[in-house]
Amino acid sequence: MSVTLDLSSVSAHYGTTKVLEELSLSVKAGELVSLLGASGCGKTTTLRLVAGFLSPSGGTIRLGGEDLTRKPAHARNIGIVFQNYALFPHLTVEENVAFGLKQRRVEPAARRERALAMLERVGLAEFADRHPAALSGGQKQRVALARALVIDPPLLMFDEPLSNLDAKLRVDMRVEIRRLQQANNTTALYVTHDQEEAFSISDRVAIMNAGRIMQLDAPEVLYSRPANPFVARFVGFENLVRMRVAERMGETVLAEAEGGGRLHLSQQALGPIPDAFVLAARPEGLTVARQGEGIAARLGLRTYLGRAYQYRCETSAGELIANGPLSQPFEPGETVVLTPSLEQCCVLEG
């Protein structure tokens, strides 16, 4: 039984500081949505509001159509996996997993059976009688996952569940989390500051900043078609150049960069181009060349990336970051031209 999670115009304050501003978000049944952003962007606050650990100063939170806003946390029936595992230190692994079932007055025998079956699913059946202190970080997080899943909650929430694990384990765990979430077809809300993690695990990702959702889309859309400069920067479009259309020639547009430099841009490659816009380019989408059409630049620091050289470039539109081929290194101080490769660029409303 999958349900939807709906937040509409939810606001939150800490004292007089506003941490969430009229946030609206809808997670479809069986969908995994990530809240992605730097610390302080409001992602954890959002999760805590849904959990009931905080009360919103405005707006409503609905789960499967039922209004949760005034419901106490212990009555919400949401499985949560915490960053620091939050296992009960005084209980065994099995008792940890069975805790939620005990609250639901499940008979001891059935409780034990279900807890052990869940531990089996996360591969920890032989650790049932241990205490959490005797487990590794990865094992602890699997117990936490089992504990949240065993109550068969309509909604699962993850609060940076992998940030205390090492890199290899993080990848394994996120695959495991995704597999279990999909197998149970549970609606899930996942909080992280790690872009790779969010993109790899989610159906959709909400990129957050200063208490607002900047864009909510599938990872593929976020990565190739960011909706605004903030999201563009976030997903790696490090170069944002303000431009104006000088002349329209059918599908092709001749545009002028803010500090000078003219470019022919194809609307076939970039989509419709408004009169004033921002051209966003990843470093690998901006190539250094001796001559040709592009933005004039003076090369600064050169760094070696393995597959290419990367240059800090001074231009009249500010500092831009561009890549150059390994076969032809340029020296700092050289005057060059930066040419965008359009498949690595996108056009933003200016």
Partner: peptide
Amino acid sequence: FDFSVEEAAVSLGSPPLKTFFTVVLPN
């Protein structure tokens, strides 16, 4: 004591006062 342990208990359906006696106090 990590207070998220207390929150975990509450999220699993244990009311706050009961959580104090069954989770906080033993620790």
